[in-house]
Computed example of a mutant assay.
Amino acid sequence: MLNSLIVGVVLLNVLAAALVVARAPVYRTRLYRPMLLNLVLSAAPLVVLGLAVVVLLPLLVVGTPRPVVWGIAGALGLVWLLLLPNSGYLITELNLNHRRAGERVPEWYDVLLVLSLAMAGVATTVLNVFLVVLLGLLATGDDSAAALAQPWARAVETVLLVLVAFGIYLGRHVRLNSWDVRHPRHLVRKVVGHLRSRGAMGNALGFTLVGALFLGLMYLVMIGPVVTGLVEVERLRG
């Protein structure tokens, strides 16, 4: 069940990348590189999660002191959280702004292209959040499927999706990148300056709430059946 989810998300990203790359030689037009860059950035949080598992598991096996392990986990977790909005950011590609006059690319191709990009971003975001909740359960020693349906898990998922939605807003409307955190003063000034402009606070709040609701519904559609299935399998085995 979980394997199917992961494979499906990976293949959706592969499809999106293939459509972006194939567009240039098939229709003899330019390669739209920003889309490929955004796809790479979208996958970055999953890479960080994989790195966390590769780094932390051996440390736990050899008996590394817990404070050291949690310190490394916290640092990797912060990097993951800063990169996570890049996955959801792909929903902002859901337009045809990349089309240029004189191109022979059929509209149906570009519609499927941007739709694949957007859905790949949503699916990757959902998978990231679910895997973090799953890893959090394993880290606390609770490996029961029923824990995935507990209120605290729902609270973590909600907070993460709200942060993702706000991060997408900052990326699209304030033109911030994850690595801008290297200059915190400039970042804060830019965000505060933007939010003080006329109507910006309402737009930011509206986008964040509606965006989080959308991602939450997609999370329910994709992860809900997985959690229900895991709980049922656990019940039958118990």
Rank of each mutant, 00 (worst) to 15 (best):
L205D: 05
S42R: 01
Y109W: 14
V40T: 14
G141M: 05
L217M: 13
W80F: 15
R99E: 03
V21M: 13
I72Y: 06
L59S: 08
L213S: 10
F214T: 01
L135W: 10
L46H: 09
L131C: 07
G121K: 12
L59K: 02
L217A: 05
L39I: 03
P184G: 15
G238V: 06
R154F: 05
N203K: 15
G74E: 14
W108S: 08
D142L: 07
A22Q: 03
W179E: 13
V62I: 00
A43H: 10
L127P: 04
K190W: 02
V192E: 12
A155N: 03
G216L: 00
Y219G: 02
R30M: 15
A118W: 02
V54S: 15
V162H: 07
R196T: 05
Y109N: 11
R66K: 13
D180V: 10
R172D: 12
D110G: 07
L57H: 14
R33G: 00
L12S: 10
F214E: 04
M201T: 04
V105D: 09
L81Q: 12
A75H: 05
G199Q: 14
L131M: 08
V114L: 02
V7W: 11
V188A: 06
V47N: 01
L59Q: 03
H186W: 14
L176G: 03
N86S: 09
T29N: 11
E93W: 12
V133S: 03
A17F: 08
H194T: 15
Y89T: 06
V9W: 10
T64P: 09
G71I: 05
V191E: 06
G141T: 01
G74H: 13
V105H: 13
N95V: 07
P225Y: 13
V191Y: 04
L49K: 08
L39E: 15
L76K: 02
T140E: 05
A147R: 08
I168T: 00
V132D: 01
G216R: 01
D142Q: 02
R185K: 08
A146M: 07
L60Q: 12
A145P: 04
T208I: 06
V111P: 00
G8R: 10
S116Q: 12
S87E: 10
V188T: 04
A212N: 07
F130V: 00
T29F: 05
P106Q: 09
V188M: 03
L41K: 05
L160E: 05
F166W: 09
I168M: 01
R189Y: 08
L36W: 15
V164Y: 01
L236H: 14
L82F: 11
V47Q: 02
A73H: 13
L115G: 01
V7K: 06
R33E: 10
Q150F: 15
V192Y: 09
V26A: 02
